[in-house]
Simulated assay, not measured.
Amino acid sequence: MSSLMSSVDQRTNIVGQNRLELLIFRLTGQQPYGINVFKVREVIQCPQLTDMPGSNAHVRGIAHLRGTPVTVIDLSKATGGKAIDDLSKAYILVTEYNRTTQGFLVGGIDRIVNINWEQILPPPKGAGRNHYLTAVTQLDDKLVQILDVEKVFAEISPPDEEVSETIKQRKSERDLSQLTVLVADDSAVARNQVKRALSSIGINVELVNDGRLALDWLIAKADELGGDISDQVPLLISDIEMPEMDGYTLTAAVKAHEHLKNVHIVLHSSLSGVFNEAMVKKVGADQFIAKFHPDELASAVQHWMAIE
């Protein structure tokens, strides 16, 4: 498996080119699922798990990885499917989200594919409101479902979404109620988390599902205003991995546009890896914040909204 998961440094060359690498895996059947390689620290064959009494029903136990305990979540069961029975043939995707490390139990590993974000599409409209998909793509004539692991993790370990009173009571020299922050994120859970946090400090928020929609919204606003939009939309908060256009490509496009270049950009992502700070500078973003800490995000918004 180590040959399958090569180092992050070797994979950063595709970042900023609107490309991604998907790790393709299975749960209990032959349906292929995908997860961005950058979300995955390592893939291991499932070791002996230690029971965790009183835990969520979807938690299969604790794996001890080099002396570190990692909670293992049955990804099939957590998304409404059957539990993965044969642990001797199962694998664990070790990931980082919400500044914690966790493992997702999967039935099998297929391969890694390198594709363009334009090939990643939003979930079908008929999927309903309670699905666990952030996107889909076609691979070998099969529909690959990309799961919303942020939603899965938030349901099992809900994050603190409240902004502290100290942050709420900060005063600004600008009337923030007259300004708008655009938020681009393909995860409904993440969008709602950001909206609640910013609404609590009096910020108007517009939400879009992906980078392409964000760029279209900003350009339309520039056309409406007839020029620089930063007086009314001083800040864009963007996820990094999104269907059709990723956050890095979106940032570069915004900074290259005459009427959008003065908009501040915060990249807000669950993606881990040492490349983030370097990529922030490369594409011209103003800041990178790892999901999800409401006070840190609200403080950053207050900072960038106050700069004229």
Rank of each mutant, 00 (worst) to 15 (best):
E118H: 06
Q119E: 13
K168L: 09
Q232I: 03
D160T: 08
A285H: 05
H268I: 05
G128P: 03
T249Y: 07
L4N: 12
V70P: 00
S157K: 08
Q302D: 09
A222Q: 06
L267V: 07
F153D: 10
S88T: 13
A278T: 11
L23N: 06
Q17E: 12
M245C: 05
F25C: 07
R174D: 05
I146W: 02
Q145A: 14
N204D: 05
G128W: 03
F153A: 13
S172W: 01
D286H: 11
K171E: 13
H259G: 00
G16K: 01
V189E: 07
M1S: 13
K195A: 08
G81K: 13
T134L: 10
V106W: 04
K281T: 12
L139E: 08
V94Q: 11
L4Q: 13
G81A: 07
K255M: 05
P243Y: 02
S7V: 10
V263Y: 01
S177E: 13
Q30M: 04
L147A: 10
S230R: 06
D216V: 09
E150Y: 10
R60L: 06
F104Y: 15
T95H: 06
E118I: 09
E308Y: 04
K261P: 00
K82T: 08
I24E: 01
V94I: 15
A285G: 11
K255E: 07
L176C: 10
E161Y: 03
K282N: 08
R66S: 13
N262Q: 08
S199W: 00
W117Y: 14
L121W: 05
A290R: 12
P243L: 02
D9T: 11
R19P: 00
W304A: 01
A290Q: 14
A290I: 06
L218G: 05
S230T: 04
A184Q: 08
G227W: 00
Q193Y: 14
S299Y: 04
V181H: 02
S238R: 06
L139S: 11
V233R: 00
S172E: 06
K125V: 14
I84C: 02
S200T: 10
N36L: 05
V274M: 12
E308C: 03
L139Q: 12
I229G: 07
A127H: 04
N130P: 00
D141K: 12
A220N: 14
E162V: 11
N114R: 14
D185H: 11
K39M: 15
I203M: 04
Q45I: 08
R66A: 11
Q178V: 01
R196A: 10
A220K: 15
E162N: 05
S299C: 07
H131D: 13
I289C: 09
